[in-house]
Design a protein around this nucleic acid. Sequence first.
DNA 1: TTGGTTGTTATTAT
DNA 2: AATAATAACAACCA
Length: 264
Amino acid sequence: MPELPDVEGFRRFFRAHALGKTVRSVSADPAILRGVTPAALGRALHGRRFEEPSRVGKWLTCWTDGPALLFHFGMTGSFVWSAADGGPERHRWDRLTLVLAEGGELRYRNMRKLGGVWLAHDQHEVDDILATLGPDAFAVTGSQFIKLLDHRRGGVKAALMDQSFIAGIGNILADDILWQARIHPKRRIQTLTSEERQRLSATIRSILRQAVESDDFMLLKRPRLGQVRGEPGAACPRCGTPLARTVTAGRTTYFCPRCQPDIP
DNA sequence: TTGGTTGTTATTAT
DNA sequence: AATAATAACAACCA
């Protein structure tokens, strides 16, 4: 599922293929566009040149020398590049295709229709779309995060997944982070010791850094919960204890009952 | 055929 | 007011 490291990969991908390139034409599935029609999007982007794309949380903002395109990848979104000569054919789930004047097509593919594509005409409109997001989970400093925790009550996993609290962490990453930091997902934030808060902060930074650098989170060599989650009879990669399964904020949650004891 | 999956939003409850 | 729980959305897979 696209979480922060995946979207950071999409940012680099977009940059590698579209930076400095000019839009010749756009074709779009209206079902994936938010607040703009395919025709209006085509008019807004025609002849525009892409500038440096930026990311906050799971959102990607692709600026041109005019308006900006914003992407959210939902649970199944990705980018596909098709070179001018011999690239892959268009696919039924390619919801948006940017045909570039210099050759090639950059496609936004999304099997389902969660997520979407927005058009913003200026910085103010971009800010409006991203207004509810908390600070980016990878950009936030340790002391900023500790301060955020001071003002948050309730379950720790629910907070990590709350995009308005901190942006970029989804269900899979949250489980991995809490397992690595040895904190039970349902621990109340008020009950976390300052040592645990520090450990949580450091773990977020370390896991996100490795995930972003590895380019492919699933290939990370370090022991991770994500390597075994979902397997029948899954055991903790650290101690071999059978993993426990529960539901938090409506999402399946795996944790090690031995490494992550529940302290009320 | 049914249930499970996941990110976000909306709604309702605490 | 803030947090929690739940359903809804979409579409595939087992």
